[in-house]
Write a protein that binds this DNA or RNA. Structure first.
Lengths: 143, 143
DNA sequence: TGACGATCATTAGAGCTCTAATCTAGATTC
DNA sequence: GAATCTAGATTAGAGCTCTAATGATCGTCA
């Protein structure tokens, strides 16, 4: 089966282009794509646990742990024990984290707007629908 | 800008699902997705250089070097100096590499067929076209 | 001949990602 | 009350990925 017939190849290429562009535009902000993703979901869910944040970002807890460790070393986030559940660490943005996030978000949104501007409303909806069906069939095929 | 409006989020989720499924079906064959990709292009381009293989797979030469090192340790490939260009290493599948590749390919193609079967010809063409436009605009946006 | 440029290979270092395993703490159940 | 279950955090280890830098080789061109 030739690569050009494989939908997966096209999907992968598109995602690679997305990752490369996001990575490039986030570099001046001093964040990786994974770090931006974590801060983005964190900014809308202050005090969330690392495990919950991992679920939002679609990664595993150890992966999120790695990312958070780097963010904490740079003082962009802080993690404090939960009042009741002593086992849970609440994660929050610091003031500096909020500032870096605002800068990075502006850059990332610029890419998203450029991407969205390429398509009509109908095309965007069509693309989202097709991608959704890809996810559904792929999850069904998982052993 | 909410995540659900970001085309990038949908793209990323689809690619994550693809990667997770491919990774799961390739596991019994003993290959990672990156290793399968390398062997696949290698099977159609025997004697190719690592740098050229990296270009085919869409990764950097050091990345391909890492992947090839692991494949070589498992004796799935062999690398011999080029006759004339002493600096170039020719990479080839071993007999065992060919066998592993055949097994892995059957599993991977099964996923691709399931994915393709979800769509009509028109839908497939539409998806490929939309993804292609994504790549174009993303590469244009790269600083 | 010698300098330059292109291509390839490789190393070093940082970061992301996973699986598997372990540890803790709270909740449930018997 | 004790065993079990669930959920979160963490460590260990393997693998992929990148950028940056280095070194080797070949071809071209002055």
């Amino acid at each position: 089966m030739p690569a050009s017939e494989r939908l997966g190849s096209h999907l992968k290429r598109a995602e690679q282009a997305l990752g490369a562009t996001k990575s490039a535009v986030l570099k001046p902000a001093g964040l990786t794509v994974a770090q931006y993703s974590a801060l983005l979901h964190l900014s809308g869910n202050s005090g969330i646990s690392a495990a919950a944040l991992a679920r939002l970002c679609g990664v595993t807890p150890p992966t999120m742990n790695t990312v958070l460790k780097n963010l904490q070393e740079r003082a962009l986030i802080e993690r404090t024990p939960h009042e009741w559940h002593r086992n849970v660490l609440e994660t929050r943005l610091t003031d500096e984290g909020r500032a870096v996030m605002a800068d990075a978000d502006a850059r990332a949104v610029r890419v998203e707007r450029a991407l969205a501007a390429e398509f009509t409303d109908a095309e965007r909806a069509e693309l989202v629908a097709l991608l959704g069906r890809c996810v559904a069939v792929l999850e069904r095929e998982r052993p």
